[in-house]
Design a protein around this nucleic acid. Structure first.
Lengths: 192, 192, 192, 192
DNA sequence: CATGAATGAGAGTTCATTCAT
DNA sequence: GATGAATGAACTCTCATTCAT
C-alpha cells in the first residue's frame, strides 16, 4: 500500500472509531463503517476484513495517543506525588468522558474474545507503571512503604471499577474525586 | 398458562441461562435458546418474545437466589465484622466463578440498554447494605468511624473492578484475597 | 351436532362477521376469529376448518336477512314504483353503511376465489327481480316500455359502481340520491 | 443507482406486475416477486422494501401508459362525440382484459389501505375529464344540456360497476356494449 | 366436546462477502 | 485500486393445524 492508501486507512480508522464509540463493538457491522466512511463496500475490504480487525487497530492507535498525552504532562523534575496526580487526573477525565470513549466497546470486545489479552496488557502496563511510581515515592519518602505491587493493583482495580460503573450507570465528578482522594490518602504521607 | 407451562418456563429459563453464560447477551439469538431447549421455534414465543425479555427474567431469578444464599449464611448473633466477612466471601466465590456466571452477559446487556437500571439497582442495593453495616460496625466499636456512604461505595467500586477484571482477564484467588484484605483492613479496627 | 353446538356455531358466525367487517377477508386469520370468540384454537376447528368456510356461512346468513328486510317493507298492494322505491332505499342504506358491511370482504373473497359464484348469484338475483318489476311496471303503465333485462342490468351495474366506489373512496348521501334519481327517471313515466 | 440498475428496476416492475395481475395484491409476497424475477432475496431489497412500494410504482407506470394511449387516439379535429367514443372504447378494452389487468389488485390495495387515495384520484380525474367533455358537447350542440358534473359522475359509476362486475363475475362484450350504448344515448342528441 | 400447548413451514429482513467492471 | 450490485445464509416472528389431555 502506498502513501495515498495509508491516508485512507487512517481516515477509515477515525470514522470507525466514531462508530465504535457510538454503538459499542458487537452491534457494529461492516455496513455501519462503510456508511460512516462513505466508501464502497468492496473498498473497505481492501483495507480490513472484519470489524474485529478494525477495532483492534482503533484500539492500538488509541493507546499510543494516551501515552503521548501522559508524557506531555509529566515535567522533568516531577515528584512521585506529582506524577500520581497527573495520572489520576487523566483517569478522571477519561472516566467522565466515558460516553464518548471506546471503553464500552473495549469491554464488549473482551467479552466476545476471552482469549484476547489487549485489556489485560493495558491493565498490566498500568500496574507496572504504578508499581515503579510507588517504589519511587517510597524511596523519596513521599509515600508509605507498602507492598508496591499489591498497592498498584489495588489502584488499578478501583479505577476499573470506576470505569465500568461509569459506563454502565453513569458517574458524577464528585464520586470520582472521593475515590481518587481515597487512593491518594492510602499512598501519600500527609505533612502535618 | 397452567402449572405445566410454569414448569416449562422454568426449564427454558434454566437452559437460557446456560446459553447466556456461554455466549454473553448480544450474540444470543432466539434460535440459540430454541436449540438449547430442544423445543420448536414457535414454542419459545409462547413464553417469551425476545432474548431481552428472557435475559431479564434469568437475571431476576439469579438475584433472588443470591439473596437467599446470603440470608442463609448470616447467623442470628452475627457481628458486623462477621457479616462483612460473609459478604466478601460470597463475592469472592462469585468472582472466581465468573466464567460460569451471567456477569459478562449482564454487562453486555447494560451496554446495549443504557437506559436500563438493573445494574445500577444492584449496585445501589449493595451500597445501602454496606452503609448500614458500616454504621453498625462503627457503633459497636468494631469499625473505624468513617463516612459510611463513601466507604460503602469504595468497597463496591473495588468489587466492580475485581468483577470486570475477572471477566475480561481472569483472576487468581490470591489476588482477590489481597484486595479483600485491603478492604477489611480499611474498615475493621485491629486488636493489638 | 346437538342444539347446544348450533348456538355456538351461531355465536362464532356473529363474532366472525364483526371480524370480517373490520378486517376484510384475506387478512383475517383463524387466530383473529378464535380471539374474537374467546374460544380455544382447537374449538374453532370443531365447527369450521378455514376462514373461507366461515366467511361463506356468514355471507349466506347475511343474504337471508336482506331478503327478510325487503319482504317486510313491501306491502300487499304495492305498485311497481313503490317496490322500486323500497328497493333503492334499501340499497342506499347499505351503500351508506358500507364501512360497517361485508361488502369489502365479499369483494376480497371474490378476488381470491374467481371460480366462486356467490357474488354473481347475488347480482343475477337482483337482475331477475328487477326485470320482473320493470315488466310489471310497463304493463301497468307506470314505467317506460324498455328492454326489461337490459334496463335491469343497467340498474344493477350502477348500484355495483356505487357500492365499490363507496367502499374504496367513500360517498355522500347526496351523490347516491343523484344516481338513484337518474335510475328512477330512466324508468318511471312522470305525470304532467 | 446507476443506469444499469434503472433497467433492472424496470425489469422488476414488469415481472411484479405479472405477479399482481395473477395473484392480486394482498397475497403477493416479496418471495413471489423474487421468484418471478429470478433474483436473490436480498437483491430485491436493493430496489424496493415492500410489496406495497412495488405495487404503487407498478400502478403509477400503468397510469402513464393509459394516458399515452388515450392521447394517441384523439385526433386534432375530434368532436366531443368522437372523444367520448374513443374514451368508452378504451374503457371497454380494459374491462374485457380485466383478467389480465391490475384492476383486482388495485381494489385489494384500496381495501387494505383505506386512507390511500390512488383510486379516488383516478376516479376524480375521469370525472373532471368527462365534465369538460360534456360541457364541450353541450356547447357544440352535440350533447343534451344536462348538469355536466352529475352526468360525468354517472358515467364513471356505471364504468366502475362494469369493472368490478367484470373482475368478480366476468362479462361479455355484448353486455358492455349495451351499457356503453345507454351511456351514449343519455348524452348524445340523435339526428333524425 | 373442548382445550391450548406445541409444531414447523414460510414470510420478512439484514448483512458479510464476493466479483465483474 | 475502487465500486456497488448481487448473493445467500441467518434471524425474527407469525400462524394454520394437530393432538394429548
Amino acid at each position: 500500500m502506498g502513501e495515498r492508501s495509508l491516508q485512507k486507512k487512517q481516515f477509515i480508522l477515525e470514522k470507525a472509531k466514531e462508530v465504535f464509540v457510538e454503538k459499542g463493538f458487537r452491534s457494529v457491522t461492516m455496513k455501519d463503517i462503510v456508511e460512516a466512511c462513505e466508501i464502497s463496500r468492496g473498498g473497505l475490504y481492501l483495507y480490513f476484513s472484519s470489524t474485529e480487525e478494525i477495532f483492534l487497530e482503533v484500539l492500538a492507535a488509541e493507546s499510543e495517543e494516551a501515552d503521548d498525552v501522559f508524557a506531555e504532562n509529566v515535567g522533568e523534575n516531577a515528584t512521585a506525588a506529582d506524577i500520581l496526580a497527573v495520572f489520576l487526573k487523566e483517569q478522571k477525565k477519561e472516566i467522565l468522558r466515558s460516553k464518548k470513549t471506546l471503553a464500552a466497546a473495549a469491554y464488549e470486545y473482551a467479552f466476545a474474545n476471552p482469549k484476547d489479552t489487549v485489556l489485560k496488557k493495558r491493565f498490566n502496563d498500568g500496574v507496572v507503571m504504578l508499581e515503579k511510581l510507588i517504589k519511587m515515592g517510597a524511596e523519596s519518602g513521599e509515600f508509605y512503604d507498602v507492598d508496591a505491587r499489591i498497592a498498584a493493583k489495588n489502584v488499578m482495580y478501583v479505577l476499573e471499577g470506576l470505569k465500568i460503573a461509569s459506563v454502565t450507570m453513569g458517574m458524577s465528578g464528585e464520586t470520582i474525586d472521593n475515590e481518587l482522594y481515597m487512593i491518594m490518602q492510602g499512598l501519600i504521607i500527609e505533612e502535618e
